[in-house]
Amino acid sequence: MTTFTFEQALPLIFMALMGASMLVYVVSDGYDLGVGMLMHRATPAEKDVLVASIGPFWDANETWLVLGIGILLIAFPKAHSVVLQALYLPVTFMLIGLVLRGVAFDFRVKAREGHKATWDRLFFAGSTIASVAQGWMLGRYISGFGEGWNYPVFAAAIALALPMAYVLMGCCWLIMKTEGAIQEKAIAWAKLAWWPVVAGLVLISMATPWISETVRNRWFTLPAIIALLAIPITTGAALYAVRALLGSRGVRGPLCWLPFVLMIAVFFLGFLGLAYSIYPYVVIDRLTIWEAASSTDALKFILVGVVICVPPIAGYTIYSYRVFRGKTSELTYA
């Protein structure tokens, strides 16, 4: 690999930042969307615990989506234009889902008792709509917004698989944050969600090279593939470990955090695989990182802002997870 000057590396820095924000978003909002999609399986009392477990975090989690899209807009305006025009409708559905869920989150306890069930259903619906829309967008993005019968099928498969992965993530979150009967339920839900997630991941890993020649060429060349095999093998091992833990005694006690951490690893590996597949493109086969980037002067200027903004965001995120660590207490609204 050639060495870059600072000017040439600037777009890469922003790509890394954008990727990191998106990864943090998917992992963090992933578990709370997943918890939202579990609402219909819980009793009314359990619903309060589910909501309480994500209460201090869920809206801060969405900050990372705003940051990621913000970086896309200011650092890669051409890619922003292509991506958000192509994804106009699913973005709208995602926003409507997120709005519904945000309103339902507050109103379920503020509205009169008789309406609580309706708001709970809207919380479930909003979480599901947003997750499915995100899956569809991911599918369309990976396939480079291709036209033809196979592309929508591919996107639809991811639109189902990503919410399933969120659900599993949500289950693991609840295993970590709850105790007793609810924790048992979360373990049972996780067992249910595990198979579809594994199946979805395998299918998508096979379908992605089939749908995109670029991805196929990047993965299936000889010395590379041996090193790259580490990604699917580690992912498989992590998922297997999650399943094994679900049947163990430890997960009900001191190891309650481990499935969640393993799921973060699964998402991270998936992200790594995706990044490798797409690089050096920001819109696959159409725009490279350098073609889509803003001018060097603009990027330098933005970098100053990023250096000022991102550490506090990371800081308060870590702080809030520290303050609200441990098992969830009763539901309260300030």
Partner: peptide, 22 residues
């Protein structure tokens, strides 16, 4: 009614290491 709903669990907030949503 509303403030009573919200006030009761507030007292339990001071448990160390236990979170409660904002």
């Amino acid at each position: 009614t509303v403030s009573a709903d919200e006030a009761t669990p507030q007292d339990q907030q001071a448990v160390p290491g236990v979170g409660s949503p904002a």
